[in-house]
Computed example of a mutant assay.
Amino acid sequence: MSEFQNVSPLPAAVLWDMDGTLVDTEPYWMRAETELVASYGGVWTHEDCMLLVGSGLWNSAGILQARGVDMEADAIVQWLTDRVQEQLAEHGVPWRPGSRELLAQLKAAGIPTALVTMSVKRMARQIVDLIDFPAFDLIIAGDMVTNSKPHPEPYLTAAATLGVDPTHCVAIEDSTPGVASAVAAGTITIAVPHQIDLPESSEYTRWSTLDGHTLADVSALYSARLTEIELDLTPTRTH
């Protein structure tokens, strides 16, 4: 019997990226980066901001140092995080379209959820605490892993901590590094482009938005992808 037969029609867990997928905090990060570079006499453009979308914070710190920010990497990460948290405290949770509704449906159905973000844990915790229902069973943050996205470690760690097989998980991402991380971990990946477009690919499913997508859509995708994997693994019979 195939390992994919008789599995639940619901995924074992749904693993969410945060910035740009769950919440639209990218403008907050861009404002913080621009302010920091300007404080050292530099100019930080929108194109520069795009270089850091989906990247680990310590990788971003290295790029900012190369642009003239004379601070240690840890200090850069702390400064940026503090500035973004100030904006969150002022403006609240800036939900991406459809994300809150889908997350609430998943929780009502009892599906485990994890927040898998390259932001530091204190910022992820602030966002989770601002959500008006118990949204996540687990947080895996950038300061909790050795390798940041696009390495698979963040998603593998989330699945292992939840005690589930990553191939039976659905991951939702918006960036190139994030999608690469989720795919490399073996998850069934939904790419929802935001700041940077993502092309169609056989490695993941591209949705233009989460708005209007429901638990039924996630379950249908999960079942369809498992069927595809099973067919790929079925030996070809010869006569």
Rank of each mutant, 00 (worst) to 15 (best):
D82E: 13
R83C: 06
V84P: 00
Q85I: 06
E86L: 14
E86A: 07
L88I: 08
A89Q: 05
H91K: 13
G92N: 07
R96D: 05
G98I: 11
S99Q: 03
R100H: 15
R100T: 01
R100L: 14
L102F: 11
L102Y: 00
L103I: 06
A104F: 11
A104P: 08
L106S: 13
L106Q: 00
K107V: 04
K107F: 03
K107R: 07
K107P: 00
T113Y: 13
T117Y: 12
S119P: 04
M123C: 11
Q126Y: 03
I127C: 02
D132N: 01
P134F: 08
A135C: 07
D137F: 00
L138H: 05
I140P: 10
A141Q: 00
A141H: 10
G142A: 13
D143L: 10
M144V: 07
T146Y: 01
T146D: 01
N147T: 00
N147K: 01
S148G: 06
S148P: 01
E153N: 09
P154I: 08
L156Q: 12
T157V: 12
A158P: 05
A158H: 09
A159N: 05
A159G: 05
G163V: 09
D165C: 09
P166T: 08
T167V: 14
C169A: 13
A171P: 05
E173Q: 14
V179M: 12
V179T: 14
V183Q: 02
A185M: 02
G186N: 13
G186Q: 08
G186L: 15
T187W: 06
P193K: 12
H194V: 13
Q195H: 13
I196T: 15
D197T: 10
P199R: 12
